[in-house]
Design a protein around this nucleic acid. Sequence first.
DNA 1: CCTGAAATAT
DNA 2: TATATTTCAG
Length: 389
Amino acid sequence: MANVDISNIDSLSFVRVLLKEEIPIILMSSRRNEIFSWRALVEGACFFLEKPISFDDLKYVWQHSYIYKRRSKTQLEDARKPEQEILLNRGNISQVDAQVHIFDENSVKESQNACNMEQHLVMANDQIQEQGGLIKTKRSLDDDRGGEKKRNLNSDNENSNSFMVPTEEKGKEMNENNNGHVKKKRKPRIVWTSELHLKFIEAVSSLGDIKARPKLILQKMNVPGLTQRQVASHLQNYKARVRQISDNVIRDLSSNTGSLQTLERIKPSVVGQPTLNSNDFAAAGKTQGAGTVQVENASGISSNVANSGKSLKQFSEGNQEVKAIAVLEPPAASSVNAGKSAYAALLKFLDEDEEEIRAGLGGELKPADLDRYCEWLREALMEKSEHSE
DNA sequence: CCTGAAATAT
DNA sequence: TATATTTCAG
């Protein structure tokens, strides 16, 4: 699954490279561009999804991958054309329209309320240190001097949350030294537990990269005490991480295929906002799915290199793995020998929630169980939002 | 409201 | 030392 910048026609070359390897490719974008999607589909892309991606989009993505994989090359040639569909508006696939959009505003909001995140939030409270009266930094000096934009750090509105685990007791927010001067306590740093991160991921995924801004994310996460700046900071780090991994994948892919060299050269500094990938999206629902990592470079081109990792194997029969998996598995001598290291990092990144996923599935699934799996997925997600009532 | 940077904390 | 988070400032 590749997140592409439809404004950059060169993104199409990325599509070609993957297709040359017979890797089914599904494109995603936050914006829509009929021309671009049309061209991509003509090239052979399976789908073109508009983000944010819905649960139903994923469901059909899976089925498509499976079907695709079962066909022989020749059959594929014939089948490709007919199977292509433009999914500019999710729901273009007839049957999904009526289905519940798991990650719509309400369900997310609800599920979030229930999860008492506070229990999972842990502040590194031990480190709260006094800034000894002697130690003065530029800032402390400035503050002592004028303190214009004094923040209500000491007010108990956001520092009194249980997960903020105050060092001592609340109310002792101010410390006085022998001079009677009041000092600010540095707010204890937040710990992004997997649960918290999960909420973050869910929020971002449901918003889509365009709207995934700190304020909205914070709002969707609905975690008391969490500040917008913290979310912003986390978002920034997250983006950087995804970007780096993606860059590596692209780099390795380029160096081994040659076809992507053009893309690599165009890649100065990264701009644009990496979007949340479907892997996170899937992970958020405690499901596993075709994970993707976004790749993007300054030229505006961006792509998500699909991954499926172990989870995907559950859908494979015997040795017949979906072609896309082959890319992530130790490449067969004959196939792409691209980026083992990059894939390793990618897999590690994507496997973070492996356990939860596995627990949820409870057992191996066979391709034939796809629908059952989807049903399970739906129920799991629904259940989650119900409990939160 | 956002984010670059400095200051800090890990 | 390298990263991550909080604060400041614009």
